[in-house]
Structure formats: structure tokens, C-alpha cells
Write a protein that binds this DNA or RNA. Structure first.
Lengths: 121, 121, 121, 121
DNA sequence: GTGGTCTAGACCACA
DNA sequence: GTGGTCTAGACCACA
């Protein structure tokens, strides 16, 4: 379900957070469906349960999942996640455009790049 | 000349690296002009000389500056830096477009956003 | 009769305890009237019978309900519950006033807030 | 500086978070002053550094402190903390008033209690 | 020196 | 069974 990239410099728990979000955004995990248990996922990924716990805690804090004690973790509404994802993207794009201006990249060139990347697979 | 942002989660040496690149890209520091000495900059920013040293080492490694022993550090040609900067931006944009697709943002909407951000001051 | 809030971080059994108390305080459940059976309520709420059992045990421990073996659970007198409720509230208010002092909120401001909240619906 | 209450049912890290906030609100820890290091505080309280780490991470997330890698943790502006504290208090008071209404406590009685608690030391 | 992440393993409350 | 907290101890990046 999830694969970790140990070459990635980001911490493992952060990778788990992002991969879970992706699975939800892609519709693999539906609203109110149950996530794998902390221990189960830890076994699957060959990592410590504490690390999974940390990832799940972060996901809960962000409102992406909710936890019912003694029962498990469940996917919260997908709409908030989509909204957050969009906002995040916009602010990153805003930063990128600022950089582009500094590098004297014209709007036309930038848009051309966007179209290229959209065309890719 | 440089101001640090302690709220920024990135390490200080990385901020110094980026700010220096910005100064070069913006033309404030010209090719072959001398950078402030390690000690001087450390004093200025109230940070550890080790940190400045590390930033300069990184800049040298990236070919942005060159060091003449006993004389100091100097700005290398700006053209390589510009090229690097552009490549970096392209890969970031590529990532961003991937995200946008996940969030079901169409090419049209994306381009619209780009234009908006370009229009801003 | 009762609805659970899975977004609430408190354990389910505690929510059941509190909701039952509310129903009694509001007069929905009268003195000596019978509560739904453990199994029945568990079915209704789609939760584990153990959880309902635990809630009922807690209510009995607090003297809010009494159990007749083989017959079921019944609402005890409402007066003790009212008294307890009041004491609990007083201690919470005491804590809150301590906090208010820390935040430099004057008695006047506090009382003003109380009046506002009383005025609301 | 801080004492833990092992009778308290709340987790240790949460107690540390609250005590630190108190120290800041009371002016014991001033803006931009340095907090004890993770290891130091852990020694002081005879708890695990991980637990202190968790408390500090939470304080940073709440914007109460900021962290400079390799240097330590520092108190952020006190004004946001005061504002947060006030909002938290208001919402708790709002809840309490709702409860009071359920228990048929009049506004007059409630205000009387508030005045009593304010009079205490 | 500083904080950040992670593992291994324990114990607890809750369902 | 489920998640939540904590300890002990290691290793890393950063200053």
C-alpha cells in the first residue's frame, strides 16, 4: 500500500503522512473507512509502531483522519483535505512565481513549462 | 545585507546560502566581487562563524563562489548560477503540477493562477 | 435518544455516562424509570456491549442509577445528581476564574462575559 | 521551576506544556529568552528527553515558542499566547454557562459564585 | 553543545 | 483487539 524511500531526506513519519494523504486524495481510502492499525502498518513497513503513531497523530491533528479509542483510525471527510491541498499548492506556486521573476523568466515561458508538465503522462 | 528568519524552519546555513544566491542573482554582488569575510558576516548576523563557514563551503561546492586562500571569497560567474536556478525551478514546478493533478486542478485553472501571481506587484 | 460524537476525544463510555446524566437532568428519564438494556443500547449506538456495561457501572458507582439483578437498570433520585452536578460546576468555575486572573481579565469583564452567555438563546 | 503532579491523570508532556505556558503568562519567562534545553529539563524533572521533546514540539506548534536548530528553544511573543488563552477561557465559560442553565442555576447565583472565587486569594 | 528522529520494548486505558 | 504514553538509548544534523 505504501512504500518508503530511505534515500528521501525527509523523516519517515512525514513520508507516511504524505503517502496516506495521497491514498485518500486518489480515492483509494474512502471517507470513514478504517486505516490499517498502528501495529499492522508498522509491521508492513518494517518500522517502529511509535513512528506510525506519530504519523497518525499528525494526520489527526490536520483533520485528515479521526481516531476512536480502542477501535482504530478512520478517514475523515475528503473535502477538507482537498481544500487544504489546494491552498498549499497555491502558496507554493506563489513562491515559485516570485522566484521566476527574480530569474527573469517571463510569464510566457512559465506558462509554456506548465503546459509541458501537464502534457506528461 | 542579509537578514535571517528564525521562524523559518530551515537551518541557518541554508538561509545564508540562499540569501547570498539571491544577492548575486539580483546583481547586488557582482562577478569577482569579494564577499564579507567569515568572521565579519558571523558578527553581522550574530551567528557562529562555523555556520558562515559551512554556508560558504556549500556555495563553493555549488560553484557559486570561489575561494582564494589568504585573500577571501569571491563571486564566480553569474551564468552558471542562473542556469542552476532555472533547473531547480523547473523541477519544483514539475512537482507542483503533479500535485495539481492530484487535486483535480485543470491546466486552465493552473495557468490562470500563474497569471494572477505574475500580475501581483 | 443518544448520539455519539466520534470527533470528541473523550472515550465512548464517558460520553454515554454524560448523555445519560443529561437526559435525567432534563427530565427525559424520570426517577425509577427503566433504562434501555445493555444489549439494546449497544445495538442502538452500534457500539460494544462492554462499553455500555462500563458506562452503566460508572453511573451506578456515582449513585445516578441503581441495578436490580435480573430486572434491569433504573434511574435513582434526581436530587443527588443535581447536587453533584452543581458541585462539579463550581469547581470548574473556580478553575476558570484562576485562569482568568492569569490572563489579566478583571472581575467586571468576566461577569460581563457571563451575562452575554446567559443572554444567548 | 516546574513540578509534575503524578496524581494528575493528564500525560506528563501535557503538564509540561501547560506549566511552561503559565511561566510565560506570569512573566517568569520573557519573550525571546531561552528555555532550558531538552536534556536539561529532562534531568531536572527526572523524565525522558523524548517526553520533554514532545512538549516543546507542541509548544512550537502552538506558536508559543520557536526553535533554532543547534541553538535551542526560545519564547515567542507573549501577546499571541495571551490572546489564545483568553479565547480558550471564553469557550470554556460558554460551555459552563450552558451547563448551568441545564442545572437551573440563575444568572444571579452564577455571578455570585464568580465574585466569591475572584475574592479568594 | 543544541534539537530531531528512530528503535525496542513496556504498560495503560478503552472496546 | 485498538491507540496513547513513556522510558532507555542510539544516531544524526546543526551551531
Amino acid at each position: 500500500m505504501i512504500t518508503l524511500d530511505y534515500a528521501d531526506r525527509r523523516p519517515i513519519y512525514e513520508q507516511v503522512v504524505d503517502k496516506m494523504k495521497d491514498l485518500i486524495l486518489l480515492g483509494v481510502l474512502e471517507t470513514d473507512s478504517q486505516l490499517p492499525s498502528v501495529r499492522e502498518l508498522a509491521m508492513d513497513l518494517s518500522i517502529n509502531p511509535n513512528t506510525v503513531q506519530r504519523a497518525y497523530a499528525e494526520l489527526e491533528r490536520q483533520g485528515v483522519i479521526y481516531c476512536v479509542k480502542g477501535r482504530g483510525n478512520f478517514v475523515a471527510g475528503i473535502s477538507t483535505l482537498k481544500e487544504q491541498h489546494k491552498e498549499e499548492m497555491k502558496s507554493q506556486l506563489s513562491e515559485l512565481v516570485k522566484k521566476a521573476k527574480k530569474a527573469d523568466i517571463t510569464e510566457g515561458d512559465f506558462v509554456e513549462l506548465v503546459k509541458q508538465f501537464y502534457a506528461e503522462k
